[in-house]
Design a protein around this nucleic acid. Structure first.
Lengths: 351, 351
DNA sequence: GTCTAGAATGAAAACGGTTACATCCACTTC
DNA sequence: GAAGTGGATGTAACCGTTTTCATTCTAGAC
């Protein structure tokens, strides 16, 4: 591989000039520039990015840590991150945290040891304190899907509370009153926020939150399955189930139908995330859209702007969720609404 | 950040000795080693991996190019690749090809420009010739899910032909004779292989391959939808549809049910890939397992072994597919088999 | 014709490691 | 006691860039 030395020799200029041509830095006479460019072309020269990094203290690498790689959320996330970064000539290097504080910490160390210029983190387990304590020596970082007050500038977030609210409200508006809730792991930021939203909606409609209608899940199929079974046993009059993500909602639908009940005729089910396959289900899943691609895109731009100084990109750090109405939710059996959709007003939110 | 100079000074040894301690290369007296290690600890020293790369001509980075990032296959693929590489202290840096030759080429260039030590490629569009022509100057590379005879040593592959065969045979064995096939993009290696397997199964059962029962799809929902509609129009006696992947199969099921028909009572549907959500569908999808995680793991190991010289890892380059029988396929309506599974023999393969 | 500002270019010192080779020294061995 | 041996360590070149600072050159002002 040709080096900058050979280029400078062939072009009859110094190293510095070649470097200037490459980086468009400093002044170079048009004729000289052409000589250098011709030489580069002739030699098939490609700068050694490792050497560039060493000399410039810029690795042009952004570390990306996600909690898992399977799952549609992370695909969308990584997809836009890569595309946005690559567009700017930056490299994405990734690592997985597996939702465990220790492994997340290790992942961060690992990425840092590669001299990344910045970190894009999608972590659940590491507490806010970790970042506060380590901020000084830590690389610049941006957190996806977190909402830590002291670190607000570093967060790209979806309003999960509002998402939980929208989900439950949409059911309340349809006339449901006995609504089960299967949550994510209590203690995780997004899970807690969604629960809070659920409670707010109940409160707004004057429906008491009942512990028995609440089941803690872990975002996985199995917990959606068990949770739904339990709800069905405990509360025969249940008319709807809100699940904190689509996977648990899919499980919920399965259990309900296996029990010989119809969705949404007997029970409505609503999910959260709007993963691609949520519309493949039968019935198609009503859910809350989680704009993973946009969050990823914005995380990448945050880095571009705050670390690489590209002031040309717009960064949006807050996103509002959106209800995606599909077939898995409907009015409860026997209500006026269930027969004439137009009468919905009768079950709508109080003022 | 402390450098090796400071460590060497504090420990009272030369740079070379510090380097030897770090890399466990060469001989170092136990007492000296301890002095160096103490110094490193005291200074909180972390080697600068960029400098290491420059000096050692090893970046410890493996470039991973996949065709897309969303989709469950790639998540599983990347997950095991990352985990296997990280275990060995190597970094994974990734890029996306979007199934277009030009973008795949660019992706490779991009990764190469970062001085990766090797490339793990999941590409569809680039032709075999590209690799043959560029092999000399190309980085060491391993191809996932390709079967290019001249490059067999560089391929980690699933026997797609056998997968296609198993899918169709399973239907033939159940008694189906009028079987539609919705393929992937003709010309792509895996799509063609699956088609070939389908034809082999038909041949084996003495069933003629009919052009009208074949629809070229593109692995996406929409083509599964359109393909199934067309098949239903064209052939009222159709009893089964084989789809070259699960996404198209999901679409197929939807269309069939929307037409008022039952799966599998009226039509059986079978997919390919065994993505996670294939068991979330109703009915649960019969499919061919695509062990993406294992392929990814082996690709990573191939690199560890052939590029980093780790002879301790076992590498398996060939994988056989496996039929996953679930609820979306069954005997055709009106056959003996549809009533008494035990009579399957009557419709089974000849000798 | 001299002076000067500014444009164009070059020289050389980083950047933080690895590694080939030289050196030193304590032990064997005969 | 001389020579050989091999372990432990040091010296210094090198990896391929960037970047600061100095230098040269040119053209316009007076």
């Amino acid at each position: 591989m040709a080096t900058i030395y050979e280029v400078s020799e062939l072009a009859g200029v110094s190293l510095a000039t070649v470097s200037r041509v490459m980086n468009n830095s400093g002044k170079v006479a048009a004729a000289t520039r052409k000589r250098v460019e011709d030489a580069m072309r002739e030699l098939g020269y490609r700068p050694n990015s490792i050497a560039q990094s060493l000399a410039s203290h810029r690795s042009n690498c952004v570390g990306v840590l996600v909690s898992e790689l399977h799952g549609p959320i992370f695909g969308a996330l990584l997809g836009t991150i890569e595309s946005e970064l690559r567009h700017a000539g930056k490299f994405a290097i990734f690592s997985v945290g597996h939702n465990e504080a220790e492994r997340e910490r290790q992942g961060i160390e690992f990425l840092a040891s590669r001299n990344c210029d910045a970190l894009i983190l999608h972590v659940e387990a590491l507490p806010t304190e970790y970042f506060l304590e380590n901020t000084p020596e830590l690389l610049p970082f941006v957190l996806i899907n977190r909402d830590d007050p002291p670190l607000l500038d570093n967060c790209i977030r979806l309003n999960n509370e509002q998402g939980g609210y929208l989900a439950t409200r949409s059911l309340l508006e349809l006339g449901h009153r006995r609504i089960g809730y299967i949550s994510g792991p209590v203690g995780w930021g997004d899970a807690d926020a969604r629960i809070a939203g659920h409670r707010r909606a109940l409160r707004e409609f004057g429906v008491a939150f009942e512990d028995r209608l609440f089941v803690e899940g872990n975002y996985q199929w199995r917990s959606g399955e068990l949770g739904t079974r339990r709800l069905l046993e405990i509360e025969p009059n249940l008319t709807a189930v809100v699940c904190a993500n689509d996977e648990m909602a899919a499980a919920s639908i399965r259990v309900i139908r296996d029990a010989g009940l119809g969705v949404p005729e007997d029970l409505s089910v609503i999910g959260f995330d709007n993963v691609r396959w949520s519309s493949y289900l039968e019935p198609q899943l009503t859910t809350i859209d989680y704009p993973a691609d946009q969050l990823g895109c914005m995380a990448a731009r945050w880095v571009l702007r705050n670390v690489y100084g590209d002031t040309g990109v717009e960064v949006q750090q807050d996103f509002e969720p959106r209800l995606v109405r599909r077939a898995s939710s409907g009015p409860p059996r026997g209500t006026a609404a269930s027969k004439t959709p137009l009468s919905l007003g009768g079950a709508a939110a109080p003022a």
